[in-house]
Simulated scan of single mutants.
Amino acid sequence: MVKSGKSKRSGALAESPSHLMHRVLQLALDIYSEEAGADGPTQRQFAVMEAVSAKSGLTQTDLVRATGIDRSTLADLVARMTTKGLLEREKSAIDARAKAVKLSEAGTALLEAARPRVEAADRRILALLPKGKREGFIELLSDLANAADAAPDLAKAEVKAAKKSQKEARKAEKLARKADGTDKAAPGDPEKVRPVKKDKKPKKAKAPVVAVEPVS
């Protein structure tokens, strides 16, 4: 067991969350691979199968939320697992346009065989920490996972708020110009500028018609 205390590493990397998390992730994946074995599912495959088994009728969009795997990677993963016969597709009972994913018999058998191995991997990882820190470690990981789930929604909300603020600013500026009697768009203002009417060309005067008497 690793003794508790400050790390002996020094420098910027010792205080870099991204670097430390990368190292810990690699350690966790190595332990997982050792316990799962060559015939077991990958960590991502296990996550997909576990999510599908927990709730029936999940679409790929639901699986993105449940597993945290990005959409393009998940689509490729589900396609390969379907080809291998681990997953099956069916019409979604909620959205007729979407396809739901369910475990096949082979997928169910693989999941049940993998669960004790994954639990063993989790025990090995937690055993690297003192008992008093294990619960807090899981809570911190949960907090980070929840923050990751909320990040896309937060980004969308910020973009929407920024657009609304810009729209209100343009509206206020337009009202101010009207109040000043300078209702003209400023340079770079996206508001449509009224076209300037060109002066019409003066019509040419027609020459008077003179009647010519016939020569007798």
Rank of each mutant, 00 (worst) to 15 (best):
Met1Tyr: 08
Met1Gln: 14
Val2Asn: 14
Gly5Met: 14
Gly5Leu: 04
Ser7Leu: 08
Ser7Ile: 14
Arg9Val: 11
Ser10Phe: 05
Ala14Gln: 08
Glu15Val: 15
Glu15His: 11
Ser16Phe: 09
His19Ser: 12
Arg23Ala: 13
Gln26Phe: 07
Asp30Trp: 04
Ile31Leu: 08
Asp39Ile: 11
Gly40Ala: 11
Thr42Val: 09
Gln45Cys: 15
Gln45Met: 10
Gln45Pro: 10
Gln45Trp: 04
Gln45Val: 13
Ala47Phe: 02
Val48His: 07
Val52Cys: 11
Ala54Ile: 15
Ser56Thr: 11
Leu58Gln: 12
Leu58Pro: 09
Thr59Phe: 13
Gln60His: 06
Arg65Val: 14
Thr67His: 02
Gly68His: 12
Ile69Ala: 00
Ile69Asn: 00
Asp70Thr: 13
Thr73Tyr: 04
Leu74Pro: 00
Ala75His: 02
Asp76His: 06
Ala79Pro: 00
Arg80Ile: 03
Thr83Gly: 08
Lys84Gln: 15
Leu86Arg: 02
Leu87Asn: 05
Glu88Trp: 11
Glu88Asp: 08
Ala98Val: 13
Lys99Ser: 12
Ala100Ile: 00
Val101Ile: 14
Val101His: 12
Lys102Arg: 15
Lys102Ile: 09
Ser104His: 03
Ala106Arg: 07
Gly107Ala: 08
Ala109Ile: 02
Leu110Glu: 02
Leu110Ala: 15
Glu112Met: 10
Glu112Leu: 07
Ala114Leu: 01
Ala114Arg: 00
Pro116Asn: 08
Arg117Gln: 12
Val118Ile: 11
Glu119Arg: 04
Ala120Arg: 04
Arg123Ala: 13
Arg124Val: 02
Arg124Gln: 07
Leu126Phe: 06
Leu129Val: 04
Gly136Tyr: 01
Phe137Met: 01
Leu141Thr: 05
Leu144Arg: 03
Leu144Met: 08
Ala145Leu: 07
Ala147Met: 14
Ala148Asp: 00
Ala148Met: 01
Ala151Val: 04
Ala151Cys: 11
Asp153Phe: 10
Ala157Cys: 04
Glu158Lys: 03
Ala161Asn: 03
Ala162Phe: 08
Ala162Gly: 12
Lys163Val: 15
Lys164Cys: 12
Ser165Asn: 02
Ser165Leu: 06
Gln166Trp: 08
Lys167Tyr: 09
Lys167Ala: 13
Glu168Tyr: 05
Ala169Glu: 12
Ala169Cys: 03
Glu173Ala: 11
Glu173Ile: 12
Lys174Asp: 09
Ala176Cys: 08
Ala176Gln: 07
Ala176Gly: 03
Arg177Gln: 07
Arg177Glu: 05
Lys178Arg: 06
Lys178Cys: 07
Lys178Gly: 10
Lys178Ala: 07
Thr182Val: 10
Thr182Trp: 08
Ala185Leu: 09
Pro187Tyr: 14
Pro187Met: 04
Asp189Phe: 01
Glu191Leu: 05
Lys192Gln: 10
Pro195Lys: 08
Val196Arg: 05
Lys197His: 03
Lys197Ser: 06
Lys197Trp: 00
Lys198Ser: 10
Lys198Thr: 06
Asp199Thr: 10
Asp199Ser: 02
Lys201Asp: 01
Lys203Ala: 07
Lys203Gln: 03
Lys203Pro: 00
Ala207Ile: 06
Val210Tyr: 09
Val210Arg: 09
Glu213Pro: 03
Pro214Leu: 06
